[in-house]
Design a protein around this nucleic acid. Sequence first.
DNA 1: AGCACGCCGACT
DNA 2: GTCGGCGTGCTC
Length: 731
Amino acid sequence: MGTVDGGEAGVAPERRGAAFERAEAADGRPVARVLLDSALPQLDHLFDYAVPAELADDLRAGQRVRVPFRSKDRRSFGYVIEFAERSDFGGELSPIADIVTLVPQLTPEVWRLARAVADRAGGSAGDILRLAIPTRQVRVEKKHLAAGPDGEIGETLAGGEAATAGETREAGEAAAAAATAGAAVTADAAAAPEIGASAATVAPAAPEPAPEQQVAEALVAGARLALTSSHGPERLHTGEWVGGWAAQLARLAIAVHALGRSAILVAPDYRDLDQLRDALAALGHPEIVRVDSRQSNAERYAGFLRALDPEPRIVLGNRSAVYAPAHELGAIIMWDDGDPVLAEPLTPYVHARDAALVRAGQSGAGLFFASHARSSEVQRLVDLGYVRAQQNPPRRARVVHADASMAPDAFAGRVPEFAARTIREGLRSGPVLVQVATPGYAPVAVCGDCGDLARCRACGGPVGFRVVGRASCRWCGEHAEGWRCPSCDGRRLEQRGMGSARTVEQFERQFEGARVILSDGEHPRESVDARPALVVATRGAEPLAAGGYRAVVLLDAERLLSLETLRAGEDCLRWWENAAALTAPDGICLMASGGGPVVRAFVTGRTEEWLHGELRDRHALRYPPAVRVASVSGGPDEVERALQQLAGLPGVDHLGPTPIPPGGPAKTPPGLVRAIVRFDYGQGSEVASRLRGALVADAAGSSSRTRGRAPGRARPEALRLRFDDRGVFDG
DNA sequence: AGCACGCCGACT
DNA sequence: GTCGGCGTGCTC
């Protein structure tokens, strides 16, 4: 028998790796409990297998194994979770067939986390493990084992592996960035008019004990903290610019690491991660484990193995980094938890914030939520006293409000005259940022004759102009050539609204001679230099400017606020604060339109009061995050059966079931319904386990109902659960 | 998922 | 009597 996938048979005992030595051995116990890889909810529990004599010495808890399943010679993969003296299973145990890799990939801590997180979300532990553990790469593993626990070749290895794919990757990039990017920025700065403020923002070498030291000590002792990070960019001594938040979090992670503990640093996207990486490198900590979606499998596995080493590490990554193994985890530090990218799009859809809360609760590690705008979820935890809010630093840039009502006559093109003046003034000495609501050219197409909104013939979605003169569906992308108005038979489509591309076009006319730069979701730009430029960016795609923007102008507030989502106000504050944070300390941030409580809160800086009130309203209405929610969808009978399981539970109610409109971007078949269950946090585990029970029962009885269907097609009326979906109330 | 088991109607 | 339809339940 031996091992599969080749390789291990020749691995000498001393090359088994430190993780192997530390993992629990069978120690003569004859039963191994295994979690199988399976998407089936009814298989989401441990199966007992016999430990065969020939594998007994090598078998460890956490190893990936092959086991016979369903019939004598059909094999399945799984992880050894634990060993036992005896089994409660009535039948005869099959033996474990093979050890896939000697490296115990699943640590006890990560297993407990996966189990708890899956239970909380009504999902399978295996689905969490798929996020937590990358697929094995034999070559990567051999090199790692050959280097030994102290051999720091991980980064080099990852770079080498990736280089064969012809791409510049992390290791090479980091070195190159250190060597060249600084020089490039310096050159840019030299060519540009000097920025008066930049000297003031250079991080001084702090002689007194840095505040990060105290925070790190508190975190390592298990503190849970929330901080609204200070605005403004910060210049690293390498010459690069990062957001001040990145330098701050990097110092904090390093301080945690200096205490002999691991730190997991989670940020929404690669642009944030790159800033953190640069800050860590500049602060003398290039040895990090990176987890992000742009990595090759080899890089990811190399990093994973290094995180598994019995050494404290700084793990830097996206939402799945919360599941990274980490030796002596001291703190989970999360940047901008309100960013929707931290919500996992794969089942069971667990938000990284929730996973971090569970993990910190289990391991005793500290928890640090930092952002420019607090999320309502963290605010709830602050209100409860579960998370302690730190004193917020004042904003450094001036924030002012100048909507059209202050100068009603003066709309020169895209922006009010006051804003236009601010832009011109800013452009004299450096870059200016204009944030717009919508990407593309014109977001809306209407009938040129009757003015009705144009709808897609294929799916009924809204039609807009992504590029000049070419209309297409915003949901399915179907081109609207030959469109005819259903109400007046008109054939001409008219452009309405102002997307980023159209704004650029107008600005090129309005601010003649200015260098206009577009950055949107499709073509994001990471940074701009300190020379004058008019940067038009959609929310979330704003480039970082060396030294900060002379002016940041926020457009389209009323359009953003009119988005009919439960979180419109909260999201707006986040978009605006994140843009405002890019302003130079002596620059200006201008809210160029809109009004009402959210805009007022932003302009006056009283966002926490607003959020507090918002949360109070949500309590009254039983909206998340004041309560938790779970959507239960599927066929009417299936949903009804699931809801019956919740009958009589206090603190639990539901809306619906209501029919799900068929079609749409998800191509929903007709006849399905959805209910939204709302429940108090204290009822979470009860609700989750009962709904999960309904799901298992539905899935177990499904084979009969599946019969006669096209093979490979999921049964559309099958019960589906989704907990804590941000978008359930958004239509 | 897939496959075995088992309980009723139609057949050599 | 027995073959085989398909609903039900299990997989260590």
